[in-house]
Design a protein around this nucleic acid. Structure first.
Lengths: 152, 152
DNA sequence: TGTGTGAGTTTGAAAAACAAACCATCAAGC
DNA sequence: GCTTGATGGTTTGTTTTTCAAACTCACACA
């Protein structure tokens, strides 16, 4: 067989199609911090305003954020996470933890968990509760023709 | 106080500075699947070759990947995850799970965990083992001037 | 000598990001 | 009623980046 020309079918790629552009995840970060308004998001992310407009529209279209009118006259809107958006929080927490570990001396933000400890997020298998390690995983490819190494 | 002009100091932003550009996380995905060579990564991600060159260089410089010579004459290299790179696997797993849930009917790839179950990754607090929910988190900002809402 | 493989570079055109200024709608103060 | 200030965007013109396709270089193998 020869030249694939098609990329690997993959939910990671799909997810990045929604939140993978520059600023998208920073917008989500702000929304999670309780910053819901255009001007404040623009300030805190340093995103150009036209780009921010485009990112917000994409996130709303994809069902990650929801545009809520908070003032009638003049019409004013703010952005809130949907349940699907809320489910991206762990992605941000894992990225933050990675950045703290490898890119920072002192973490700029720490989350206190309700159990009393400062949060150190870990990814575990829901079934058995074990922390996920690479050696414990075996990939099964469900799209005909594709395997770990690529298209056959 | 007035015009910040500086974005929020944040490890998420820092992490995205390393892996946030288009294709970076797809490159990492391939490397995790055991695809270590330039041509194969280019095929499976559909990244333009010059862009791939730039991304690989950045990932190597940042200590996420390691360039390993696997052939002497002619010199040939492949890319392997470092321990720091390996720590990004949970980020990809959470993104994949999100994509599976919200963007796909049938997941293209399923990971079988050593416990026997198909992997459903969850993010928990390392201290208490509880799944992380937004209401259970309180942010503490360690950079003077910054709070949840922004620069004061 | 000629073909193939692998890891990139080079090139020129198209798309995206950027900064800065601008606009529309209103409320409140003077 | 005129001006100032918020807020949530658009518009404009320039700079960067991306992109596809072709090319290069070093070698192995036949």
């Amino acid at each position: 067989m020869t030249a694939p020309a098609t990329p690997r079918p993959c939910s990671i790629a799909d997810a990045l199609g929604v939140v993978g552009e520059k600023y998208s995840l920073l917008v989500l970060r702000e929304v999670f911090f309780g910053v819901h308004r255009f001007d404040a998001i623009a300030r805190n992310t340093a995103a150009p305003r036209d780009i921010l407009t485009a990112r917000l529209r994409r996130l709303v279209d994809a069902g990650v954020l929801e545009k809520v009118r908070y003032n009638e006259r003049p019409p004013r809107y703010e952005y809130r996470p949907t349940p699907a958006g809320e489910e991206l929080r762990p992605v941000l927490l894992m990225l933050l933890r990675w950045g703290d570990r490898h890119l920072r001396d002192v973490p700029p933000t720490v989350f206190e968990h309700s159990c009393g400890a400062d949060l150190d997020p870990v990814t575990v298998c829901r079934a058995c509760g074990e922390e996920v390690h690479s050696e414990a995983l075996t990939a099964r490819f469900q799209v005909p023709g594709w395997s770990a190494s690529g298209l056959s």
